[in-house]
């Protein structure tokens, strides 16, 4: 019971989270914390971290360990590349949307993937979202410290979520994971439609 208390507090605090209005969050605590906040208030980044965490958690402890390492490292590599090569093509948003939509669909299907496939998904997702983060992680933005903060946030999110999902016993809780995956995939599908709609 005591172990779940921080989660309940986090749950309650999240209910009262203030609207975030900026492209880059300014926490007032420095670049590292701005990087953490950036991931938490950027829906695409948050969704892909959640989707990879859910997918890895479904596939067991080995897949979880691989994903926890692969996703943040790929995110870091992508972020460093993005910071160097910005501005990035506007089509990148289609790819970042595809990563969380497809990963969410795999969670919904409870797809029995091999560890290598989980690693490949985590690397692809990390690279693409890191690239998208890159331009905001330049020295004129929140810099390398911000990128490290973002990578740490991703690592902690995936670690917490995948380990929790991994420990779930078969039953309604695992079904809830699949439902969450279907929500993520559905949001991605609608986002594709919106991207096409606005591009016309």
């Amino acid at each position: 019971m005591r172990r779940s208390a921080p989660a309940v507090i986090a749950f309650a605090l999240a209910l009262f989270a203030a609207p975030a209005q900026a492209h880059l969050a300014s926490t007032g605590f420095g670049d590292f914390y701005d990087g953490i906040a950036h991931v938490l208030i950027t829906p695409e980044d948050l969704l892909v971290a959640l989707a990879v965490g859910l997918l890895a958690g479904q596939r067991g402890s080995r897949a979880t360990r691989f994903a926890v390492i692969a996703l943040p490292l790929a995110w870091l590599a992508g972020g460093l590349m993005g910071a160097r090569w910005s501005p990035l093509p506007s089509q990148l948003v289609v790819l970042t949307t595809a990563t969380f939509a497809l990963t969410g669909a795999l969670v919904a299907l409870d797809a029995r993937l091999r560890d290598a496939a989980i690693i490949a998904i985590a690397i692809a997702a990390g690279l693409l979202h890191g690239l998208a983060n890159g331009p905001t992680m330049t020295p004129s933005g929140i810099g390398t410290q911000g990128l490290i903060g973002a990578v740490c946030a991703v690592a902690v999110l995936v670690l917490l979520l995948s380990s929790q999902v991994n420990a779930l016993v078969p039953g309604w809780q695992r079904i809830a994971v699949r439902v969450a995956g279907s929500w993520i995939a559905a949001s991605g599908l609608l986002m594709f439609g919106w991207l096409y709609h606005t591009a016309r």
Binding site: R3, S4, A7, V8, A10, F11, A14, L160, L161, Q164, V165, A167, L168, V169, Q173, A176, V177
Partner: peptide
């Protein structure tokens, strides 16, 4: 397996 954390 408290589900509160993923929920949060």
């Amino acid at each position: 397996t408290p589900f509160t954390l993923p929920g949060a």
